[in-house]
Structure formats: structure tokens, C-alpha cells
């Protein structure tokens, strides 16, 4: 792949890097979006960057939300870039999403093709970047011999990242999760649910990853039709958010609280506070980077 195909041109990369500021825009007739990303309290103490990335954008069929968490381990020393590439590739893939007549067609395409397009797209740009800028002695020097061997076997490990993506089409909502993180939906009664069940393999600090050779097999996909009762709010977050709460109920309450605030006090109020809340949550909770993307629907 040539450098021209790299999804992170310099200006786009800068835009995505501005994750610490809450952003907002209106898309479609009734849906709104906002997102924010903050550097974790532990990352600040240890001089580490924010290794998350998040973006929401208008796209071919409607809206796309993409959110990624770079692994940050010593072996994944380019994972900040890996997370940004994951988000950029997810936006590209969504932009190419065809217009399809029914939710069933979207579901079939999402299950058959979406994970492979995302993984292969991310792996292609990572391979191209490695070709243009091989690992340096300074990057490899801190690694143990066994870590270097792992990297020789799979250089993509250096960019290792998770990916969560949501595509909103006129007929359906498509959810994809590869690795840790959380997807929550709130219905019109304020009830919070997970479109995808928890993955018991994602315990502690281990996560499935885009860098695995056939990572698309690890992706989980769900298609929700918009015909019946569309959600009032969709929230995607990196795992630093849920890990900051004493229990899962406390984290799920984030989604219902945000829905009430957005409905009653408006997006501008929430937008102005969001990054501050995330900083407080990281400092008093997990210490990890926290990124969140929110799509919400005005009551009709």
C-alpha cells in the first residue's frame, strides 16, 4: 500500500489527536453526537500519552462512531498510533458502506464482511507504516529478548489496539467490538442494556486485539433494527471508564444519567462538562485513559 492510502494524513491525525476536547455536531434529523477522550491519571503520573482515540462522523449511510484503545504495553510501543489508525480505518470502511434495502441486508453484510474489512484495512496500513519506518534501536532497546522475539514473529504487535464501532443506517444500528471496552444503549424508559454480552476472556489486562493474525474471528457484531423501538442513547467507552466504578451498576448508570442530562439540560451543558467528568473519573477510579462516544436521539 502506498503512503497515499494511509488514512492518517497529517491534518486528520491532528484532528483525531484533539480528543481531550468534547466535540459535538448534529447529524440526521434527530440524532446528535458528542465525544471526548482524556489522558489517564496514571498516564500523567508516569509520563505516558493518551493511547485512546475516538471520533464520530457523518458517513455514507448515516453516522459512524469509532473508538480504540492502544495496548500501551512495552511491546506495543506504537499503540497510540495504532489506536488512531483503527479509528481512521473504521471511518473509511463506514464511508464505503453501501446503501442496502433492508436491515437484513445490513446484518448480513456486517456479519460477513465488516470485521474482515476493518482488520485487513488496519493491518494493511500498519504494514505500510512498518515498511516506511522500521523499528528503531531506541524502540527495541528497552525490550526483553523474549519480547523482541514476539515482535519479530508479529510486528503488528507494536501497534496493538482494540476497536469498537457503531454504524447508524436508516434501517438499523450495527455494533462491532474487538477487544475490551463497553457498548451501552438506553431505551426511551431509561433502561440500560448491552447490545453485546460481556466477553469472559477479557479479564484483567488481557484483550483481544487488531494485531492478531486473524483478528476478525475475535470481533463480535450485533445488528439492531430501527423499525420497532430505536435506542434513545448509544454509548461506547474504553475500558478505563467501566473500571473506574465500584461495580457494573455504577457504570451503567453513566448512560442513563447522560441521557437524562442531555434531554433535560441540553448537549451544550453536557459537552462543556464531559472532559472534566472523565478526568475526575480517571483520577478517583481506574487511572486509565478514558474515551467515550455518544449518539443520542431527540424525543419526537
Amino acid at each position: 500500500m502506498s503512503g497515499d492510502c494511509d488514512p492518517l494524513t497529517s491534518d486528520r491525525e491532528a484532528a483525531i489527536d484533539a480528543g481531550a476536547t468534547a466535540r459535538t455536531a448534529t447529524a440526521g434529523a434527530h440524532w446528535h453526537m458528542l465525544y471526548a477522550s482524556v489522558r489517564g491519571a496514571a498516564h500523567r503520573r508516569n509520563g505516558l500519552p493518551n493511547q485512546d482515540a475516538v471520533r464520530i462522523s457523518r458517513t455514507g449511510p448515516g453516522l459512524v462512531l469509532a473508538l480504540a484503545d492502544g495496548h500501551g504495553s512495552a511491546t506495543s510501543f506504537r499503540s497510540q498510533q495504532g489506536a488512531r489508525l483503527a479509528v481512521a480505518v473504521a471511518l473509511q470502511v463506514a464511508a464505503r458502506w453501501p446503501e442496502l434495502p433492508t436491515a437484513s441486508h445490513h446484518k448480513r453484510r456486517a456479519e460477513d464482511d465488516w470485521p474482515k474489512e476493518l482488520v485487513r484495512g488496519w493491518q494493511a496500513v500498519v504494514d505500510a507504516r512498518l515498511g516506511r519506518r522500521p523499528f528503531t534501536a531506541a524502540e527495541l532497546h528497552p525490550l526483553e529478548p523474549s519480547a523482541r522475539q514476539r515482535l519479530e514473529r508479529n510486528p503488528r504487535l507494536a501497534w496493538g489496539s482494540t476497536l469498537l464501532s457503531v454504524i447508524l443506517t436508516p434501517s438499523s444500528i450495527l455494533y462491532l467490538q474487538l477487544g475490551d471496552g463497553d457498548l451501552l444503549v438506553v431505551d426511551d424508559n431509561g433502561q440500560v442494556n448491552r447490545p453485546l454480552p460481556a466477553d469472559p476472556r477479557l479479564l484483567g489486562n488481557e484483550t483481544t486485539s487488531l494485531c492478531a493474525p486473524e483478528a476478525w474471528r475475535e470481533a463480535r457484531v450485533y445488528c439492531q433494527t430501527l423499525v420497532a423501538a430505536p435506542p434513545a442513547l448509544i454509548l461506547a467507552a474504553t475500558d478505563g471508564y467501566a473500571n473506574a466504578f465500584r461495580d457494573d451498576a455504577g457504570f451503567r448508570q453513566v448512560a442513563s444519567d447522560l441521557w437524562v442530562m442531555l434531554r433535560d439540560e441540553g448537549q451544550a451543558t453536557v459537552q462543556a462538562q464531559l472532559a472534566g467528568w472523565l478526568n475526575e473519573t480517571s483520577a478517583q477510579g481506574s487511572g486509565d485513559d478514558i474515551s467515550v462516544g455518544i449518539l443520542w436521539r431527540e424525543a419526537t
Binding site: 512495552a74 514476539r150 504487535l157 489486562n205 488481557e206 483481544t208
Partner: peptide
């Protein structure tokens, strides 16, 4: 303060 590790790849320490 462990960083995330990619699971399912050749074994490394957790």
C-alpha cells in the same frame, strides 16, 4: 498499573 496485553498471541507474561 499494567498496560493492556494482546491475548491469544505467542505467550508473554501477563
Amino acid at each position: 498499573s499494567p498496560a493492556s496485553q494482546a491475548a491469544g498471541l505467542p505467550a508473554g507474561l501477563n
